[in-house]
C-alpha cells in the first residue's frame, strides 16, 4: 500500500499509481457493491427521509429529488468503472473533472457495505479482524476505500 499514490498532473489531470493486484481487484468490485443501491435496507440510507414526522414534505421531496440523486450516483459509478478499465501497469491518469465522481463512488461503496452488513460505530473502531467473517471483511473494505477517499480529499 505504501506505493499507492494519487497526485495532480498539471492543472487538469490526476495520476493514480501503485495500483497492485489486490487494489485493482477491490476497485473492480465496486460496481457489484453499488448494485445494492436500490436494496431496501440500503436505499433508506442513500435516499433519506428529509423531514421525519412530516409525511407530505418527505414524500414530495423524494418525488422531486430522488431521480436526480439516482442519476448523480449512477453517473459517478459509470465514470469510475470506465477509468478503472483503463488501468495499465498499475497506473491510470484521469481527468481532474473525474475526481468528484471517484469520491462519490467510493463513499457510496463504503455506506452500502455498512448498511448491508449492519456495521456500527463499534465495528468501525475495532482493531482486530477475522477476514473469514463477512462482516469483518466488509469493515476492512470500508477502511480500504476510506484510505483511497482520504487521498483524493487531500489533493
Amino acid at each position: 500500500m505504501t506505493s499507492f499514490v494519487i497526485e495532480r498532473v498539471g492543472e487538469d489531470a490526476v495520476c493514480i499509481s501503485g495500483i497492485d493486484t489486490a487494489t485493482l481487484a477491490l476497485l473492480r468490485e465496486v460496481p457489484s457493491i453499488l448494485h445494492y443501491r436500490s436494496h431496501p435496507n440500503v436505499s433508506k440510507r442513500m435516499f433519506p427521509d428529509v423531514k421525519p414526522g412530516d409525511e407530505q414534505v418527505t414524500k414530495e421531496f423524494h418525488e422531486a429529488m430522488d431521480p436526480d440523486l439516482e442519476y448523480l450516483f449512477a453517473s459517478a459509478e459509470e465514470i469510475l468503472i470506465q477509468d478503472v478499465a483503463k488501468v495499465r501497469e498499475g497506473t491510470i491518469e484521469i481527468p481532474g473533472t473525474h475526481v468528484d465522481a471517484w469520491m462519490s463512488a467510493l463513499n457510496q461503496t463504503r455506506l452500502i457495505l455498512a448498511e448491508l452488513h449492519d456495521i456500527d460505530v463499534g465495528d468501525m473502531g475495532r482493531g482486530e479482524f477475522d477476514p473469514d467473517e463477512k462482516k469483518d471483511l466488509a469493515v476492512l473494505k470500508i477502511h480500504f476505500f476510506g484510505y483511497i477517499l482520504d487521498l483524493f480529499i487531500a489533493l
Binding site: P48, D49, V50, P52, F61, M65, L69, S104
Partner: peptide, 18 residues
C-alpha cells in the same frame, strides 16, 4: 434549505430538515 439538503444527500451525508 431544501437545496442544501439535496446537495448534502448528493454527498451522502445524513441530513434532514426541521
Amino acid at each position: 434549505a431544501e437545496h442544501y439538503v439535496h446537495q448534502l444527500h448528493g454527498h451522502q451525508l445524513l441530513a434532514t430538515l426541521e
